[in-house]
Design a protein around this nucleic acid. Structure first.
Lengths: 256, 256
DNA sequence: TAGTGGTCTAGACCACCAA
DNA sequence: TGGTGGTCTAGACCACTAC
């Protein structure tokens, strides 16, 4: 069946575009049609080149695009494979929930790979967002969030020392620790955007560099308006959906 | 000053990684440090190759990454340039607003490049989302939304014919047309995710294929609960921020 | 050790753009 | 017309993985 996909015939019909795109389409179609299933291995690049009559460079260019789009996975020394289906998580975007609690609610295990958990000087945005005094330092928490062993997000949080003076105390849910101190935020403002993942972040999330990620910046506030948390997270674009409910304007805060 | 960036010296310090990444870093740093400004042109690829002592293929691989990340722009037959700064739009994500009205509110001009405006058979998701009867057809509106001439989003809307039977009637704001018919949604549910843009969408938005985009799927409802609009939009990741305000859970729907 | 993907090269032709 | 990016080739060496 590989024969059909990598047949030398059918290429170069003028107007069909570059060869690497034609091949890319063939492979993508085979995956979409289920003729290639998750986990299946593709022939070695050199074999694909021989079979199609194209050069290895062209093969690699075709495969490259499918890898960034998340359809294929390449493992050095091992081979090229159809990417496993990732289960898409959905998260409500109007409630202020904790990652840990959110996952627990749907019966998923959670663990964190700690990258950093220390006291540090703040970045300029952190000074702004948290309203820090000059010279004030922060607790910095950086971790990769995983569910059932699959990396889902990178979370980088900064909190004033007056809110959290012992970053090592946080092992699981940050919000649980804050709650115990009466410092759990009741309100937050988030900004959401999309960006291509850099080399480091892609590596941490187990996807190809350049893959699309959802960047979320959040500032959490106490009831008295004090900012307690400035968090920048990066979620895998292929593993997360955020759901929001919208309402028409002009009917808020006017309940007697 | 190009001399510093493209000097043959300083490459290949063992442990510094592949040559194309080293060069990529040099260029990215120069852009970040303002030594290269938006609109500036880089030397032709062949010149960069000669200056650095690297091959043109390696130069292209270095440039490629910076193009997907949106730092550089390449124009065939013309040259390679530092990308113009795009103004980032911010949109509140809790109010149900119209693109047209939203832009008008901030004093931006809006126009649409129509891709399609016709009556069509629905896709399966559209049947589901809109609750269509078997055989029922829909009005399909597809356009590129631009503000001040810059493409910001692709919008693909589907509406039951009972809501909109003359798609050609829509020239500007869809919500304005719906409002005139008493069919403007008062509530909507959105799902947000990130994905790499395909060739066609990237082209429509004027960015490189593979660039990150924000995908938004929205179903809009009337007060009586009837679904009137199923819209899939793709926003440029580098041009849009969505802002949301979150509150703690457990205080909804329990008003006596 | 044999096979895989990752990097790199030198050289070629094409399509497009600007003068 | 001359220069630019876009595509493609054949061949080489390296680093890693699996056996």
């Amino acid at each position: 069946m590989m024969d059909a996909i990598f047949s030398p015939d059918g290429f170069d019909a003028t107007g069909a575009g570059p060869l690497y795109l034609q091949l890319q389409r063939r492979i993508a179609d085979a995956v979409a049609a289920g003729r290639l299933s998750p986990g299946d291995s593709l022939p070695p690049e050199r074999d694909m080149a021989a079979m199609t009559g194209l050069s290895r460079v062209t093969i690699r260019k075709a495969v490259e695009g499918l890898v960034t789009q998340g359809h294929l996975v390449q493992k050095r020394g091992s081979g090229t494979f159809v990417a496993p289906r990732v289960e898409r998580m959905e998260q409500a975007l109007s409630l202020l929930t904790s990652f840990t609690e959110d996952m627990a609610r749907r019966g998923k295990s959670v663990d964190s790979l700690w990258l950093s958990r220390r006291i540090d000087g703040p970045a300029p945005e952190e000074v702004m967002g948290l309203g820090l005094r000059a010279g004030e330092r922060i607790a910095r928490l950086e971790r990769v969030r995983r569910s059932d062993g699959v990396p889902l997000a990178i979370e980088r949080a900064a909190l004033p020392l007056s809110v959290l003076d012992a970053p090592e105390a946080v092992t699981g849910s940050l919000y649980a620790v804050l709650q115990a101190r009466g410092m759990r935020p009741v309100r937050a403002v988030q900004r959401i955007t999309a960006a291509n993942l850099g080399e480091r972040d892609a590596d941490l999330l187990g996807v190809a560099p350049g893959a699309a990620g959802l960047k979320i910046e959040r500032i959490g506030y106490l009831a008295n308006g004090r900012a307690v948390e400035f968090t920048r997270s990066i979620y895998r674009g292929d593993a997360y959906d955020f759901a929001v409910e919208l309402k028409i304007a002009d009917n808020e805060g006017t309940m007697p």
